[in-house]
Design a protein around this nucleic acid. Structure first.
Lengths: 255, 255
DNA sequence: GATGTTTATGCCGATTTGTGCAATTTTTTT
DNA sequence: AAAAAAATTGCACAAATCGGCATAAACATC
């Protein structure tokens, strides 16, 4: 590849180049990009991580793949399946007949949906078409899908319509799929998704955040809420585990 | 142009290749893969173990087998895929940039969604979460999901909310997944689904009914509309085919 | 314009991951 | 039971990643 003799390349510009390469070849190696774009592999790796965080590409060891290499998507579904399964079981233990639950998307939520016991009689509101479909398999669950513009990155309904619809709901639990979680609270990378999550929290009596420990202590650009809004922090670890210690006093309960 | 000849293959990429091979032949030998992908048999074996762990394939002595249900199958699996593919292509030929299309669910609609050319710039409204997800893969398609109670049988949004939401829309095309179709028109078996379909028709300038010929001349309990409401009847057959003759004078166009 | 803060980048050492090789054990075939 | 093939295990080595740190440019504030 012949490089256009740019002395200075802006970060955004470089990332655009990367995306172009990925769309073209379906894959890129960090080493190649480093050479082509005249920056260190570290920088490339940081770029790839950012793009992956924004759901634009899929980062793998040594480079990145285009998302349409959709094999990785299915794989991500099962990624850390055991951990997510434990989280799901703990979450389900909070459910009671007759409850109303408002939930977002995410793979952990998906595991919850599939693990849901048949006899449970719950009304679910969700902004995620995928979760809605999973839940619809359950004979005793009533599923209400909250519609709106579908966010390309997160695959959930976003926009004013959804938010105002959510405001009409009064749910027992809000279950949020978490992307960023640290001492400062819950964070996310997409503005519209944040608006929806905020509305969901407000519409619910209690907030449940199921999350695998691996994702703890990660921060994204936009804040969703602070820790004191979290009623249940659910991980696959024992509640007394050392990693969770710093959260003990800040959230309602740890399961 | 200088091609970066890919002598280096990413792990995930290789595993994707393996999956492709398995889906193609239903089985693979470690030795073959080793040769084909230029890595040691050890590596192949490790790959196969990982994929088996993730429940994507079944590992056996000497190689691996496909699981009966794998994701690529979800697509080609669709009953009468070839016929539906032809129907999909014909339907897509009606689409133009800037159009607004209102669509229901069904496997034929799903094939349309996956076949949609990338450059097409269309706004889709849909009551089907599954179709919404498929369409969301398209970079240039805006997808608006119409929410509501999820019908257990048909997996589309139903109920008063959806209907009144649909009434606010003005679309160019309405594409209906068809269950019953005969000389008396379109019919269906679920009352709530019929309400939604009626609203969808009313909200659109033109009605398209993509349907494989096999389903022609079938009747269900509830009538959705008569044939004169149908603007385009699209089947996999030639428009002049004998089976379609009796519909010639009753619908707008036959494609 | 001086000063502090944020952002982008590169560098380095410690760690993890991916791969191949060889020795050993298990399974299959004969 | 012997031989062949495949799988497992442990190890070594290289590549990739992570985390911290340093630097410099860009930006903000006084």
């Amino acid at each position: 590849m012949i490089i256009t003799e740019n002395r200075i390349m802006l970060k955004k510009e470089r990332q655009a180049q990367i995306i172009k390469q990925i769309n073209l070849h379906n894959k890129v190696l960090s080493s190649d990009l480093s050479l082509e774009l005249n920056v260190s592999e570290d920088t490339i790796r940081r770029d790839l991580n950012e793009l992956a965080q924004e759901n634009i590409i899929v980062k793998v060891h040594g480079g990145a793949l285009s998302k349409s290499y959709n094999f990785t998507a299915t794989q991500a579904d099962t990624y850390a399946y055991n951990e997510k399964n434990i989280v799901a079981q703990k979450t389900i233990s909070l459910f009671r007949d007759g409850m109303t639950v408002l939930c977002s998307g995410g793979t952990t939520m998906r595991v919850i949906a599939t693990q849901l016991p048949e006899n449970l009689n719950i009304t679910f509101f969700t902004v995620s078409p995928l979760i809605a479909l999973e839940l619809a398999e359950h004979p005793n669950a009533e599923v209400i899908l909250l519609g709106g513009k579908l966010s390309n990155s997160s695959k959930i309904s976003v926009g004013g319509e959804v938010v105002s619809k959510i405001n009409e709901i009064k749910a027992d639990f809000c279950i949020l799929g978490i992307n960023g979680f640290d001492q400062d609270g819950i964070s996310d990378s997409d503005y519209e998704v944040v608006q929806v999550k905020k509305a969901m929290m407000k519409a619910s009596k209690q907030l449940i955040t199921p999350i695998i420990s691996e994702k703890l202590n990660s921060t994204l650009r936009l804040q969703v809420c602070s820790l004191d809004k979290v009623d249940y922090l659910i991980t696959e670890l024992s509640p007394t585990h050392q990693i969770l210690e710093s959260y003990q006093s800040k959230v309602g309960y740890i399961l």
